[in-house]
Amino acid sequence: MLRIIVCIKQVPETQEVRLDPVTHTLKREGVKAMINPFDLYALEEGLRVKEARGGKVTVLSMGPPQAEEALREALGFGADAAVLLSDRAFAGADTWATSLTLARAIEKLGGADLIFCGKQAIDGDTAQVGPEIAEHLNIPYVAWARKLTFNADDLLKVERLLDHGYDAVEVELPALITVVKEINEPRLPSFKAKLRAKKEPIPVWGLGDLGLPPEEVGLAGSFTQVVKVFPPPARGTSETWTGPPAELAARLWQRLQSLGPSVVFRK
């Protein structure tokens, strides 16, 4: 009976990312959200291990209250239970404070034999939280897993994806694994699981539940801080024209000529 925990993050849908011009942070209000794509592979692997070897899959997420939607979605894929870590005190956390909070929650859940994370989140792209959780829990981790094989009940062979090929390592449980997309093909949600997910109570744990001092979480517990977020400077102005090719060509020629001597044409 393996205790499997999958950590997921709710991220903005990629095409809709906008920055707040004042605070330089991601605008999340009114932006459609989804489960970080890599985390779906982590969840799938957790579910597959459970189906093959028995166990319970709990999904865990830290985020604002609306992250509950992501957890319900995860339950719709077949996870057994979910816990949300949400508290104003957690806001502004960097990867250190985030991973510490998640690690304490995993301890509160009674620990885990296997913890799965996606290799990174597509919004922050740090790839740090998974490995840091393992450090806080003082357990081994293997990042970028593309294949898992059990060599014994508590011994896992992991193929790690590298730039050129892969290497294979063995790791004893309990361990944390971060996965790449090559590891599996995530399943579809199932209707019965979605129905269950609608009604499943999802506990929300805050600072008090985790027994962490306020100075170790959120912005206060962060070693790093985002000072500035900026899009790369635009390279001049651009216009998009549509129309029949001949017309567009003529228009383009006129425009280039009007730009004057700085544009030089040679045969």
Binding site: L188, P189, F191, K194, L195, K198
Partner: peptide, 18 residues
């Protein structure tokens, strides 16, 4: 109903993705 909509959305997801 919410359940009917959920069913239709799930089937549509399969149509789109698979």
């Amino acid at each position: 109903t919410e359940e009917q909509q959920m069913l239709k959305d799930l089937a549509r997801q399969i149509a789109e993705e698979r």
